[in-house]
Amino acid sequence: MSRMTVNDRPVEFLMDDDTPLLWALRDAANLTGTKYGCGTGDCGSCMVHIDGEPLRSCLVTIGEAEGRFVTTIEGLSGDRSHPVQQAMVAEQAIQCGFCTPGIVMAASALINRNPSASEADIKAAVPNLCRCGVYPRLVRAIERAGRVARRQERISAAPAPGISSKDAAREVPALASPNTGPEENED
């Protein structure tokens, strides 16, 4: 039975200590953004932050994670606002999206630590496999995320999830909030 903090919440897994963190997150905590791609540490799809370090959750047991702070893609920003998330969308450095959470976790750990990361730093920090081939955009995207983290640039490429139809209608003239109608004042 292992206790840890997952996305800022205390969690106790009622599973054997040798269960890889990946499967505890996916099957017990229903945090399915962390992906299974190989189980052998080769692909990086399952990367999470453990005490801020990017680690492959398929290689860490919940026993080893006892008492530590785990952040998954779901807990990275909550509203897609992490600079790496915004830059990945802005550069369209995503295709099928399966490797994306792992790449975002690897890159965000780097940018959190060193927003001025160089191309060489980025290549060393992102060992993840992507089979669709987003690599040509990745260095550019992560460098751009660094600029955003350094407040040299702003991006709003990926809106926060769960926008109300009222807010959407305010932004997009073609949309209307069906209940109130667009002309009606709020409150």
């Binding site: 893609i73 779901e74 998330q85 990945m88 969308v89 995503i94 999206g97 399966f98 994306t100 490429a157």
Partner: peptide
């Protein structure tokens, strides 16, 4: 900048995009 950004990327960048193994 493209005038028609991909519509599947926001959900793919925060782990909420559901693949077959993510159904609960």
């Amino acid at each position: 900048q493209t005038s028609f950004p991909r519509i599947d990327l926001p959900s793919k960048v925060d782990g909420s995009h559901l693949f077959a193994g993510d159904i609960r």
